[in-house]
C-alpha cells in the first residue's frame, strides 16, 4: 500500500482512501480511523463529563452492573456495557479478557503464559490482568497465533 502525506493549508484534516475496491485491508483501515475518532464519554462524579480517546484506555471492568474505565492516572465510569465497548473499539485494540473485563492490547507491556491456559497481561502501569482460559484463545487469534 502506498502512503502519501500532503501538507496543505486546510481548515480541517482530511483523509482520502483511494482503492480499486474495498478489500479487507481498506475496511480495516476505515474501521480503525472511525474508531479513533469515537471518543468515549466518561465521568468521575455526576455532572463532570470527560471525553476520552480510546487510546487512553488501559482496561474496562464491570463491577455491580457498572462499567469502569481505567486510564493510567484515573478511574472513570461509563454508560456503555463491556459488549458495546468491545464492539465499538475492537479496531483500536480492545479485547475481552474475562467475563467482567475488556483490555486494550496496545496498553499491555508484556504477556506471560501461565498454567491452565491462562495468560497474565502486565499493563503499562504495572497492573497484572489475568486473561482467563476461556478468552485466551481469542487473544491468540487476535495476535495471529491461531
Amino acid at each position: 500500500m502506498k502512503i502519501t502525506v500532503e501538507h496543505s493549508d486546510v481548515a480541517e484534516n482530511e483523509i482520502v482512501l483511494r482503492c480499486a475496491s474495498l478489500d479487507e485491508e481498506c475496511l480495516h483501515i476505515l474501521a480503525l480511523l472511525n474508531s479513533q475518532h469515537k471518543k468515549l464519554c466518561v465521568w468521575k462524579e455526576l455532572g463532570t463529563f470527560t471525553f476520552l480517546m480510546p487510546t487512553e484506555i488501559l482496561y474496562c471492568e464491570t463491577v455491580d452492573d457498572k462499567t469502569f474505565v481505567y486510564t493510567p492516572q484515573e478511574v472513570y465510569q461509563t454508560a456503555l456495557s463491556l459488549a458495546e465497548l468491545e464492539t465499538r473499539y475492537e479496531a483500536v485494540g480492545l479485547l475481552r479478557a474475562s467475563k467482567s473485563m475488556v483490555v486494550n492490547l496496545h496498553a499491555i507491556a508484556t504477556l506471560t503464559s501461565r498454567a491452565g491456559s491462562r495468560i497474565d497481561a502486565c499493563m503499562q502501569n504495572g497492573e497484572i490482568i489475568v486473561i482467563s482460559r476461556h478468552y485466551a484463545p481469542l487473544l491468540r487469534e487476535r495476535l495471529g497465533l491461531l
Binding site: L105, H106, S113
Partner: peptide
Amino acid sequence: AGRVDTKQLNQSLQNFK
C-alpha cells in the same frame, strides 16, 4: 514450554502493536 509460549506471545504482541 511455558517460556517458549511467553516469548511467542510477546513477539506477536509487538508485531500487533
